[in-house]
Computed example of a mutant assay.
Amino acid sequence: MRLARALHALAVKLFDDGVLRLVFEHARNVAIASVITAAGLQFVREGATVTFTPPDFAGYVVVAIGLSLLLLNFIDGLWRLAKLRSHLAWQVALAAAYVLLAWRLAQLVLLFKTGGGGAMPF
């Protein structure tokens, strides 16, 4: 009986309170910001020529935009976690997981963009 109440409370929190929607929004934002960051890194790596700016500068600007978006999304997530008043260890664990997943996603996007195979380096 206690398990059924806990599952029902979890379902209400996820579906009725919109927590699941927020998780997917943050995942989408991380994916988009990672793609932007990876595109900027690829632009720097290839050294493509742009007529109005040096290629490295343009690439680093795109990387800075992508990293700024990742940081803003991260801060938004921390802000929402702080409102929940959950345990500090839980907040730190979620923040660390967020940073690691964002980093690995950017590496994965960059790997697919370059067409490279094999294992991803840390």
Rank of each mutant, 00 (worst) to 15 (best):
A27R: 05
A89V: 15
G40S: 10
Q91P: 05
A97F: 12
G115V: 08
T51K: 10
V92W: 11
R5N: 14
F57R: 05
T37I: 00
F57N: 00
Q42I: 06
G116Y: 03
L101K: 01
G77I: 02
E25K: 02
L14S: 07
F43Q: 12
A48Q: 15
F57V: 12
R5Y: 14
V35M: 13
L108S: 14
L10M: 04
I32C: 03
M1T: 10
I32E: 09
G116R: 14
K113I: 07
W79M: 08
F24L: 13
L78H: 08
A4H: 12
A33D: 00
S86V: 11
L105A: 09
R2A: 10
G116H: 12
M120K: 11
V109D: 07
F112W: 14
S34N: 03
E46M: 02
T114G: 11
V50H: 15
L67W: 06
L14E: 12
A39V: 13
L67M: 15
P54C: 00
L101M: 12
T114V: 13
D17C: 02
E25P: 04
L41S: 06
V44Y: 04
A102W: 07
L105I: 10
G115C: 05
S86N: 03
R21A: 07
A89H: 05
L110G: 05
V19N: 02
L10G: 03
R28E: 01
G117E: 10
L69A: 10
F15W: 08
A4V: 15
L88K: 13
A89N: 06
L70I: 03
L100N: 06
T114A: 12
R45Q: 08
V62G: 04
A96K: 08
E46N: 05
L78Y: 12
A4R: 15
W103Y: 14
R80E: 10
L105P: 08
L71H: 00
M1R: 10
V23S: 02
A39L: 13
L41N: 13
L41G: 11
V109Q: 10
Y60G: 00
F112Y: 12
A38F: 02
Q42C: 11
R80I: 06
F122D: 09
M1K: 07
G117R: 08
M1N: 11
L20M: 14
V62A: 03
A89W: 09
V99N: 03
A82T: 06
P54S: 06
A48C: 02
A96I: 13
L69N: 05
L10H: 04
